[in-house]
Structures are given as C-alpha cells and as structure tokens.
Amino acid sequence: MDIHIHDVTKSFGKQIAIDRVSFTIHSGEICCLLGPSGSGKTTLIRLMIGALKADEGTVQLGETFMPNMKMLQTIGFMPQNDGLYDDLSAEANLEFFGSIYKLGKTKLQARITDVLALVELTDDRKKLVRHFSGGMKKRLSLAIAILHQPDFLFLDEPTVGIDPLLRRQIWGQFQAIRATGTTIIVSTHVMDEVQECDRAALIYNGRLIAYDTIPHLLGQTDNGRVEELFLIAGRAGGTSHA
C-alpha cells in the first residue's frame, strides 16, 4: 500500500508547519524525510500516522484517509524519545504493547522472541529498562514498533544521540525489516543517512523542496552532497516542487 500525501497544509496558530506538501511514498520502500531541526519532519510523520489532522489536503494510507482508528493496527511508530516504561523489563514492555494488538499469548511470545533477536536484546529481556543504555533503549523501542508486523513503520529521528557504530547496526535492522515488505518512513537530520534510503523527501521550512530516488537527488548537485540541495532551496526561499 502506498502513502499518498496530497496538498497537505498544517498550521499551529499563525505558524505554518507544513505548507502544501504533496508526494507519494511507494509500498515496500524506505523513505527518508530529511531536513534540519524544526523543518516539519515530525509534523509530517504525525499527519501520516493520524496523530494530527491536516488543515487542508489529504493523507491516505492505501485507500484510507487519515486519521483513522482502524489503520492503527497496520502502523508501527517509534517516537523520538523512545516511549518506554523505565520501571518495567524489556519483556514486560513488549508484552504490554503486544497485548494491545491482541496477538494472542502464543503468537505474542513467539514475536517477542523474534524481535528481541532482531534487535539483539535477547539476553537483556528480563532487565529493567531504567538500567538500559541509550542504544539499548532505541533498539527496544524499535522492537516494540515492529512487534505486530505493521505494514507501515514510522521512525521519528531514530538515530539521534547514538554513536556511528550503533547507527550502522540500527540501519542494518531497518533494512532487515524492509525485506519483510514493510514500508519504512524515517525522519532524520543526518544528511549521510540518506544513502540508506530508496527515496528521500527533503523538507525545508515546512515545504517539500525535493523528492526523488537518491541517485537522482545527488545527480542534481555539483559535489554529490545532499546539503547542497538545501543551500539552493535556502537561496530560493524554499519552493515546493514535488
């Protein structure tokens, strides 16, 4: 199922957070929402998952217009600040979120084993989360987001504050999840991470300044660095050309 974002605008008071953005994320791809802090990446994710309603325009997950409660079963979401219960063990966190999706006891236990193996936390499953390192928390947060095998996985700045080695490891895990057919939408302000994606949407001041495959995007620059596209957009005032 593709994600269709059509002429979406969202304001908070007088501030326009998303300004007439349109593009389509293709099923089974990793789409990177790239932009500096405060550019509107998180707002765009929140519009896609239905946490916000667009002032104008529409967001569709497949054929369904968002926000829609029924679609939450098909969405996996990893918030920026982990969203974990520190006073529970990794396993208890997974069991709690898993129980909401009504996976059934046997299937839930099997999934917990699978996702813990994927994020390499099997040996730490009984540990309280408050004793976890930052990287372990990120990986557990990812495990929760994919526990119910969602069609769409939204990751809001998943690699913020973690070292390059762990970042590489986590991107490896994203690729493994994508291989199962899940469409992944990742927001990031780390320009290098764009290389890991199939397509990237470049967001600047709430506007979409470019959306294309990575080779095509880099082909538009002189030095092969994606930052240049932001500099060009900055000089032009951030026009939208989806």
């Binding site: 409660m69 939450l72 979401f77 982990d82 969203g83 974990l84 219960y85």
Partner: peptide
Amino acid sequence: RSGGTLERLLMTPI
C-alpha cells in the same frame, strides 16, 4: 506524556 509512552500508546488501537 514527556517520555513518549502516551504518544506511542495512542498510536495503537487502544
């Protein structure tokens, strides 16, 4: 609210 668990919880079918 501040830890993101409520946001995550509300993005489930609960």
